[in-house]
């Protein structure tokens, strides 16, 4: 630190220099505190991962009274039946839960991805300014509604008013009902992120296409959407990730604790998340095989969402078109 001149023309002679050494110490302390906060925030991912690994390991090494491993990994991955309570011995084939999750997610995606993209195109390419801002705030409201509310909506509106009039095969709970509700939940994610991507495409590309005699729709389909593709795909992936991890909607609407390997949208299904809810709400004793199985399920779920997020980040980084 350079020392200050004894006086400057602007300074009263009574002014004393700030305490320089103290200042340096304060700087150091503050930086350390901020660093610790950062480490703590980041530590949560690591901690989640470690806990999942430890408990999942615990699950696969549990031994019964006869000393046999209760649930070998091969059974977990290979068996097609998930029935921890009703069958004897209990069966832990995670494929049933995964298929439940994928079925609900597929229905949600089939509903929300096209609709969200079209809405985004409308917002970015067609809507007059005033309509656009109203529409965007409505979608923001939709995005802010707690997911448990969508579960309620599935039970009290989607099932009785949309599905049951359509076909008598729909009971109170179904993959379809939950899937549509999840779809409504992820719709604003797609529409808002895809709109951002579309608006990032420079006007000059649209002009170039129109000047060649393409119609507005041809411009959108052949130039604007391809140019925004990485952002659009990333929005799709994020939405799908959210659908996979969605809990409260499926716990309410998808089924009453019956896991099954099916592609029938009218069937009851159990998802990975819904199973975890069932375990933690019920009175499965901590440390028991059923309780412990929820960690293996959580690990599977975590792996799914982690891979999705990772692919999304990769696509954005690798294929992002940067425009000035």
């Amino acid at each position: 630190m350079t020392s200050l001149p004894a006086s400057t023309p602007f300074l009263s002679p009574r002014a004393r220099p700030a305490r320089v050494r103290l200042r340096a110490a304060v700087e150091w302390i503050i930086e350390s505190i901020l660093f610790l906060l950062t480490v703590l925030s980041v530590a949560t991912t690591v901690a989640i991962f470690l806990i999942l690994v430890r408990e999942t390991w615990g699950f696969f090494t549990m031994r019964g009274a006869d000393g046999q491993v209760l649930v070998p990994i091969a059974d977990f991955l290979g068996d097609s039946i998930w029935s921890p309570l009703l069958s004897n011995p209990p069966r832990f084939g995670v494929a049933s839960l995964v298929s439940g999750t994928l079925l609900v997610t597929a229905i949600a995606a089939a509903f929300a991805l096209p609709l969200g993209l079209l809405t985004a195109v409308y917002l970015s390419e067609y809507a007059p300014q005033r309509v656009r801002s109203v529409l965007k705030s409505l979608l923001e409201i939709l995005a802010g509604i707690p997911t448990v509310v969508y579960g309620f909506f599935a039970l009290t509106f989607i099932t009785p008013n949309l599905l049951q009039p359509l076909s008598s095969s729909f009971g109170t709970h179904s993959a379809m009902s939950a899937g549509i509700a999840v779809g409504i939940m992820i719709l604003p994610i797609v529409s808002s992120l895809a709109e951002d991507a579309l608006r990032a495409v420079p006007q000059s590309l649209r002009d170039g296409s129109l000047a060649l005699g393409s119609t507005k729709a041809e411009t959108i389909l052949r130039v604007v959407i391809p140019a925004a593709l990485s952002g659009i795909v990333a929005s799709f992936l994020l939405a799908i990730t959210r659908a996979i991890g969605e809990t409260m909607i499926v716990a309410l609407a998808a089924g009453g604790g019956v896991a099954q390997l099916t592609a029938n949208p009218a069937a009851q299904v159990q998802t990975m998340t819904a199973y975890m809810v069932q375990v933690f709400l019920g009175d499965a004793p901590a440390g028991g095989v059923e309780y412990q199985s929820s960690y293996a399920v959580a690990f599977t779920l975590f792996a799914f969402t982690f891979v999705m997020t990772w692919i999304g980040a990769l696509i954005l980084r690798r294929y992002r078109e940067v425009y000035e």
């Binding site: 949560t44 991912t45 989640i48 990730t241 809990t247 779920l301 999705m308 997020t309």
Partner: peptide, 18 residues
Amino acid sequence: QLNISNLAGVPSIVYGLL
């Protein structure tokens, strides 16, 4: 940074386990 964006994708129920 990657970690934080990954965290945002973790289902909230998994945070419950932590």
